[in-house]
Design a protein around this nucleic acid. Structure first.
Lengths: 240, 240
DNA sequence: GTATAAACATGACAAAAATCATGGCTATGT
DNA sequence: ACATAGCCATGATTTTTGTCATGTTTATAC
């Protein structure tokens, strides 16, 4: 017997999707949700697998059902810059689709991830007919733009130490903690953290050690525990 | 006798606006254009005047008729970061309006600038009724997001020298040249250039002197001439 | 025109961060 | 269990960049 609650068996149904309330996408009218359920393709990506590649053409939009994804740019000298971290309920690949360009970023699964693919034609069709959803998409883009502008300013003005502290808090905000309430609920390599912060891997390692020495974090391999969030926030020197 | 071609006398008419083809805004349906023409308020901002301030509430959207505007963030330590440069045909203030937040940036006129103000209610009303315009807005946001993500990556990965060269080319792309075909068509202080590049003013001054020594630019007060664009592009080390 | 402030320029120095080098640790596959 | 590669860690060093100080030039206001 196949339970419809086991979302990983077969293709999830949008109307009963666990992410329904988290996703812009699933604020579409019921009729369109049905259409999406019918046409979408569900897929599993193993940790490390690429969902789409910078430079290739978008054929649709991806809606993350469960799992974690990083969106990265390849810098001119080949260094990776992580521009977004995503989770269940988030959609990816819409930016390029809307601009009518090739992907400007690469999406890679940070852990085993279930993703639904909605074909371009359907996506555009729904947008053209569902004003409320289009409005939500616009808001999403506006929010994303705002966040990116803030990151830009911080990259330009804040020292690496502050940026690292900020990124740790950002990871917490995005993925939260494990059951223990202190361990960040994601495994990132030091290099990946560096690529979020925009610095050299060694600098990240060194600063993490300092943060540990100053009792702000605890380190256990890729596990990072936030044990003094207040101090970390102060280190980040955030005003907003 | 008042000529309707003298756009600075009274309020310009959208349908005959010189920027009609440059602006997303003016791709709206004719009926809405008429509505905008009726309800908008036209204004002149002198060089240095603030159009709106970070932290205050948006009551509408601004459409630049002529002139130049900088959009800036105030960093946590009070340093200004220029996040966008705008010109005739561009609209500003839409980001906060769509997100339903206060302005996250300050807009200041870089020279005498004519701007039309479209009230929030009208703007939203039109968006809700003109799917094509909403789609254009979405595209605009998507493009802006892309540009900002690129800037972010470059800030994170490129040395100041490359970023300055890139910014000079960006200014050229945005505002073009004067009649002589080499002088950048905008007057920016060294500090403003530094705030675009994301570096200290002194570094900008020093590097500009180097660029001059290396025959890439000529400097005459705030006038900057690009005399070797190719070399400048090479210095910028651009791949995209 | 002259005073005054602002912007520009440059040198000296300090701080921050990247790079290079080396060694140990830890996963992964056989 | 063991080899191997990749990741983590740390020290030494260099490079880059920012800061401070000081003088000059250029606008701006009276």
């Amino acid at each position: 017997m196949v339970s419809k609650n086991l979302i990983h068996e077969g293709s999830p149904v949008c109307q009963t999707c666990a992410q329904k309330n988290a996703s812009v996408f699933c604020k579409a009218k019921v009729e369109y949700l049905n259409e999406i359920t019918g046409q979408k393709v569900s897929n599993t990506f193993k940790k490390g697998q690429t969902i789409f590649n910078e430079g290739s053409y978008p054929f649709g939009v991806f809606c993350i059902n469960s799992g974690k994804v990083k969106l990265t740019h390849l810098g001119d000298d080949g260094k990776e810059q992580i521009i977004r971290l995503l989770k269940g309920g988030d959609i990816i690949g819409y930016r390029a689709l809307l601009s009518g360009e090739r992907y400007s970023a690469t999406a890679v699964a940070l852990e085993d991830t279930h993703i639904c693919f909605i074909p371009k034609e359907l996506f555009i069709y729904i947008l053209k007919n569902d004003a409320a959803l289009t409005f939500e998409m616009m808001k999403l883009l506006a929010d994303e733009l705002h966040k990116t502008e803030l990151k830009m300013t911080h990259l330009a003005q804040k020292p690496v130490r502050e940026r690292l502290a900020e990124i740790l808090l950002f990871i917490e905000e995005t993925y939260g903690f494990e059951e223990d309430g202190v361990t960040l609920n994601v495994r990132l390599s030091r290099e990946e953290i560096a690529n979020l912060v925009g610095t050299a891997t060694e600098s990240t390692i060194r600063l993490l050690s300092e943060f540990k020495r100053d009792n702000m974090v605890e380190l256990d391999g890729k596990k990072i525990k936030i044990i003094n969030q207040k101090k970390l926030a102060k280190t980040a020197n955030l005003q907003d």
